[in-house]
Design a protein around this nucleic acid. Sequence first.
DNA 1: CTATCAAATGATAATAATTATCAAAAAGCA
DNA 2: TGCTTTTTGATAATTATTATCATTTGATAG
Lengths: 142, 142
Amino acid sequence: MDAERRLRSRGYRLTPQRRAVLEALAGEGGRPLDTSQIHKRVSREFPGIGLATVYRTLELLVELGIALPVHLHEGSRHYELNTGEHRHHLVCLSCGEVQPFRGCDPGELAERVRDESDFLVTSHCLSLFGICGSCRSPGRGR
Amino acid sequence: MDAERRLRSRGYRLTPQRRAVLEALAGEGGRPLDTSQIHKRVSREFPGIGLATVYRTLELLVELGIALPVHLHEGSRHYELNTGEHRHHLVCLSCGEVQPFRGCDPGELAERVRDESDFLVTSHCLSLFGICGSCRSPGRGR
DNA sequence: CTATCAAATGATAATAATTATCAAAAAGCA
DNA sequence: TGCTTTTTGATAATTATTATCATTTGATAG
Ligand SMILES: [Mn+2]
Ligand SMILES: [Mn+2]
Ligand SMILES: [Zn+2]
Ligand SMILES: [Zn+2]
């Protein structure tokens, strides 16, 4: 795992707890998880791990660019591994299913902004809401 | 104000408190405000207004489509009046300035999503982060 | 291998945002 | 005016997040 190098090069240790958080984020198809979900999963391997450790680990992983914060409109933030691929998410308002969306071009977006202002875009946050295919097809709803 | 009709048609009353919240959202160039900012402004006219009333009013205004929730990455949500114009916001990471961005075409976005999935987009949430013009120009920074 | 020191953890308290309750006040109407 | 429903304000309860601090762990020097 490349995360270990990025941690060590900054003087941080890859502890078992941190490894477990990384594995939780990597599992289950890499869907974005909130802190509670991550804590539950890590607890299977580390019964009694503190919720604060989960928060601290996520904060660190985001700082190092290993994880990305995702906003899915509810109360709590979600996190996902930074795969290097630029993507956002489609959130089904009916079943809650979250799937990745890759049709966003950050460069083109920044240009469009520059056209109407002198603002320099360095990052953005996009979430798309609607109804997923399963919820729309009559046969195979869930 | 058209908000009054929308309220009354659903059996709600346009109370002085609700009017004050609407005025707070309309003032100051219609910038998105969080609940604390709204509460402070309304308190000038209504000393002792409950914070819960502000929350309840915002929830109602959003339900009726009179106000829109805006996510600007920090802890608390922001709200703005629904002007009917589709727009998002540019958030300066240096000075915190927030300015509207109108270069988003929801229809085109929905099409792009349909191209790569069978997801039907009904709404989306976009925030753009970066450095504003004032913070980049050496002479007139703030 | 053991002593040492900084980093990390777990338990817990403290904040902060939001929501729920409920009795009192206000508004609309007979 | 009296009755009914809505709305409010005060307050408690939740929930998410951050801060503290004593203890443990991991790396390293001797
Ligand atoms: Mn994007
Ligand atoms: Mn848009
Ligand atoms: Zn669905
Ligand atoms: Zn700025």
